[in-house]
Amino acid sequence: MTTTRRTLLTAVFGGGLAVGLSACGGANSNPLNNASSSAAAGASGSSASGTGTLVVGSANFPENALLAQIYADALTAKGVTTSTTLNIGSRELYIGALDDGSIDVIPEYTGNLARYFTKGQADISTPAAALASLKKALPSNLTVLQPSTAQDSDSICVTAATAQKYSLTSISDLAGHAQTMVIGGPPEFKTRVDGLQGLKRVYGLTFKDFRPLDAAGALTVTALKNGQVQAANLFTTDPQVAANHFVVLKDPKHLFGAQNVIPLLRKDKVTDTITSTLNAVSAKLDTSTLLSLVTKVVIDKQDPTAVSKQFLTGAGLA
């Protein structure tokens, strides 16, 4: 009885392990490439027939997913066949998806994207400088269209109580307090040049600890509100900042820089319809519009598809 049971356990477990190991073996180089070799084949097959589906991707936070939905709906209204792959993950992840053709378009932010392609060397102090740096740094297979005036920058936020306690209004004011504070943000904030490294390089700040949370989601807001972290990386268009009376610290040394919303796409997918449609969307977006749209999704819990429809109808784009 026990022997059979033990043998069975060993067999089941051993089998599971073998599957796990072979999965690791396949994954070691680049799962995105592996996964999409078939997808790429499928895409080229369909473009040969002249009617490829345009895949709109998004990063893993509500505003970006909403922007992707707006892009997709605007393009659909102009007769482009689109599909969406939302909430893919961090930039490190979705640029890979663009490279291998799993997605074709994604809403991006000028400054951070320029930094990403230049490993942090780009001048992004003004919208014009950020756009120029970005255009210079883009790899040959990718292109951007017109930027919108809407900006969503990274920021460092603290609670109203913390701001009052240390009289904080800008990131510079954290000097002398940072070493007692735990800062939270998405896992990639730790390794990015404009994350922890940037806070140290530009402002000379070293925090007591870093807590890897999520991209400005419920986890980060909960942690900041309840004191598990004393400072957090949130977005300037995040309606939860105002809802929780968080204080956005000013960024006098332009660590986070200008971050205009801009469509990033694969060069081989660009058509006149796509260009004119997405440029029209960008023309209608400004920061306050963007903030109100994100508020509808995040605070009022409206369906992103409905919010996208409202915006496009109001702007005369659908």
Binding site: N28, S29, P31, S90, P186, P187, K190
Partner: peptide, 10 residues
């Protein structure tokens, strides 16, 4: 989790 966010598959 971090490997995924950094795109560090190893």
């Amino acid at each position: 989790i971090d490997g995924l966010a950094y795109r560090d598959y190893s």
